[in-house]
Design a protein around this nucleic acid. Structure first.
Lengths: 345, 345
DNA sequence: CTGTTAGCGCGTTCAT
DNA sequence: ATGAACGCGCTAACAG
C-alpha cells in the first residue's frame, strides 16, 4: 500500500499492447488515432486513475505554468490582497503561484529571484523591497526569457513592465474635497522625504493651494518614517502650528490611525476639531466610530490581478512565432487612485 | 541574445574533457573527487553561471521541495498571517510554497488537491473549506505518499495530522474574566449551531456558570451565521433579554465589531453599558476608541509555522529507512487560545 | 579517483 | 493509423 507506483503511459501501453506514443496521442485527442484505440486508452487511463506527471512535463516542455511572486511581506493587508488578485487570475488561467517574501531585504530578494529562475517559473511578479535601487538581478532575467512585471513598488526606470497606482489624481481629489468642505489650513502627514511618492504628494499639494490662491505654509507638511513614534512626533509638529490645521492628509490608513490616536490624546475630537483623509482604504476603517472622512483607494486586488493578467498575456504572446527582432516593448498600467468618501455613521 | 542555451553539466563536462558524472560529483563536493578536478569544475561552473535545472532534479528525484497550501481564502487576515508563518518556516528549510484558495468550495478544493498531487508537491497543508465534510480526497493522498497537515479548520476525525487552537481554555478565561469584573448577565454571540466550536463554547459557558453558581439563561446564547444581518438580529435578541446582559462574548473580532456597531446604534456605550470580549485579536482592534476589553488570541502565524514545521518534520522522517510496517501515527498540536486583556486608552 | 550507462515520464520526429 | 527511437538534464549504479 505504500510506494504504489503511479501509472504511466508506459504502463497503459503495455496493458493494451500498443506503443507509448499511441497512448500519448490518444490521451491528447490527437487526430489520426483510431477512435477505437483512443477509447480503449482513455478508458484504461480513467480506470487506473492515470494522471500525467507534471514534473516530467515541466521538464520536457521547459515551462511550468507557474508564476513566481516576490513581495516585501504578507503581513500588510495591501500585499495579501494583491496576492489574492494574482492567485485568482492565475488559477483561472491554469497557472500556479509560488510566493516568497523579500522582507524588504535586497539580498533576500536576489536569492529569491535566483531560486525562482532555477525552478523555471514562466514569469515573475515583483513588488520591490524598500532597499532595492539596482535592478541587475531583474534585467538578468531577460537572458533566460523570464518576463517580469512589477506592481505597486515599481522601478523608476522606463524599461520594465509595471502596474501601479497614480496617487496624484487621488491627492488632488482629496485636497480639493477638504477645501470644499471649508478647510483652509490643511496639513500633510507625508512619508519619508526621499520617497518619490512623498515628493509628488507635496508637489501636488502646493500646486493646488496655488491654484486655489490659498496661502502655502510649509510648516504644514510633516514627514514620518512610518513608525508610530515618528508619526506622533510629526503630529506634534503639525498640531503646534498656528492657526492649527483643521484637516490632515495622511500617507496611509495605518499612519492615519496612529495620527488619530495622537489627536485623541490631545483631546481633539476626530471629524470635528480635526479631520483626516488618508490613502489605502483598509476595510478596518469602516469599523471605526470616527473613521477618516475619506480615503484614496489603491486597489491592491486589482493591481495584483492586472499584473498577473499582463504577465500571462506576455507569456502567451511568446508562444507566437517570433518576428525578426522586433523592438522590445514594455507595458504600463496606471490605476488611478480614487477618493472614497466615507459615510458618516 | 534570446534563447541562449543555459549551461548544463554536459556542457561543462565537454569543455573540461571529463564525464558528466564527474562534474555532477564535483559540484556536490562528493568525497573521492580529485581536489584538482573539483576546483576546475567549480570554477568553470561559476564562470558559466551554471545553475542546476531544478525541474530536471525534481523530475529525477521525485521530490520538489515544494509544499502545497490550500486555504479557504487569502482575504481574511487570519489566513494571510497563517501563510506568512508557513512561508517563513518553509523558506528557512529550503521549501517553496504553492498557494491556492478553495473559496470555501468543495469542488474547488478537490481540484486543487489533484493539481497539487500532479505537480508532485512533497506535502500539503490544508485549512478546510466550510463545505467539506468528507475527506476522501485527502485520504487518497496516502496512496501517493503525500502527507497532509491540517490547521485551524481541521477534520473532526482522529486519523489526521492537525494543528489547531483549543478555545476552551480561552473561553473559560474570558468568561471568568468577565465574572471577576462583576458581570452576572453574560451573553454569548455564538457561531452557527452546527459548528463544533460553537457547541464547545456553549458547553464551556454553562459549565462555568454552574461552577460559579450563577443562573443559566439560554436566552443569553444567540447564534449568528456570520453575516452582518444575522449578527445584528442576534444582538437584537440578546439586548431584548431582561435584565439586559452587561457583557458579551463574541465568536470573533469581526463579529464583535458588527455587534458593537449595533450596540452603538442602540445608544449603548461600549465598555460602559455593555462590554465585549472576542476571539482572534485582530491588530485593528488596537486602533478602536473603545476596543473589546479582551480577546482570545488564536495565533494564526504560529499555527501556520507549526503546521509547516510538522509537515517538514514528517517529510524528513520519511527519508529514514522505513522500519517494517510500523503503525501509522498522527501528530496533533493544540495551541491554547489565550486571553489578551486590552489596556484602556 | 573517474568514466559509462541507464533511466526518470513524457512529447515528438521519423518511419512504416 | 501506429510504432520505434530519441532526448530533455540530472543522478546513481556499476565498472574500471
Amino acid at each position: 500500500m505504500k510506494d504504489t507506483k503511479l501509472p504511466t503511459i508506459k504502463e497503459i501501453a503495455k496493458q493494451l499492447n500498443v506503443s507509448v506514443s499511441t497512448v500519448s496521442r490518444a490521451l491528447h485527442d490527437h487526430p489520426g488515432i483510431g477512435l477505437r484505440t483512443r477509447m480503449r486508452v482513455q478508458q484504461l487511463a480513467q480506470q487506473l486513475n492515470y494522471e500525467p506527471n507534471q514534473t516530467a512535463i515541466f521538464f520536457k516542455q521547459r515551462r511550468t505554468f507557474t508564476i513566481g511572486v516576490v513581495i516585501p511581506n504578507l503581513k500588510e493587508e495591501f500585499f495579501s490582497q494583491a496576492i489574492d488578485g494574482i492567485e485568482e487570475t492565475a488559477s483561472s488561467n491554469k497557472y500556479s503561484v509560488l510566493i516568497s517574501q523579500s522582507k524588504d531585504d535586497l539580498e533576500r530578494e536576489r536569492r529569491i529571484i535566483t531560486t525562482l529562475k532555477n525552478n523555471r517559473v514562466d514569469g515573475i511578479i515583483v513588488s520591490l523591497s524598500k532597499q532595492t535601487t539596482t535592478y541587475d538581478h531583474f534585467t538578468a532575467l531577460k537572458k533566460y526569457n523570464i518576463p517580469v512585471v512589477f506592481f505597486d513598488r515599481v522601478p523608476s526606470l522606463p524599461d520594465f513592465n509595471k502596474v501601479y497606482s497614480n496617487m496624484n489624481s487621488g491627492t488632488r481629489e482629496a485636497i480639493e474635497f477638504l477645501i470644499e468642505k471649508g478647510h483652509r489650513r490643511i496639513g500633510v502627514l507625508n512619508g519619508p522625504e526621499q520617497m518619490r511618492s512623498s515628493k509628488e504628494r507635496t508637489e501636488t499639494y502646493k500646486q493646488i493651494l496655488i491654484k486655489r490662491r490659498l496661502k502655502i505654509d510649509m510648516g504644514l507638511v510633516a514627514h514620518t518614517d512610518l513608525t508610530r513614534e515618528s508619526t506622533w512626533k510629526a503630529m506634534q509638529d503639525l498640531l503646534s502650528q498656528r492657526p492649527r490645521p483643521t484637516a490632515i492628509v495622511a500617507i496611509n490608513d495605518y499612519i492615519a490611525l496612529d495620527a488619530m490616536q495622537y489627536a485623541r490624546q490631545q483631546r481633539l475630537k476626530i471629524n470635528k476639531d480635526i479631520c483626516f483623509v488618508s490613502y489605502a482604504n483598509l476595510p478596518i476603517t469602516s469599523y471605526l466610530e470616527n473613521p477618516p472622512m475619506a480615503s484614496v483607494e489603491q486597489y491592491p486586488y486589482d493591481q495584483g490581478a492586472q499584473a498577473a493578467g499582463m504577465l500571462i498575456n506576455i507569456l502567451s504572446e511568446e508562444e507566437k512565432p517570433t518576428r525578426p527582432d522586433e523592438p522590445e516593448t514594455f507595458q504600463n498600467i496606471v490605476i488611478n487612485g480614487q477618493l472614497i468618501i466615507h459615510g458618516k455613521r
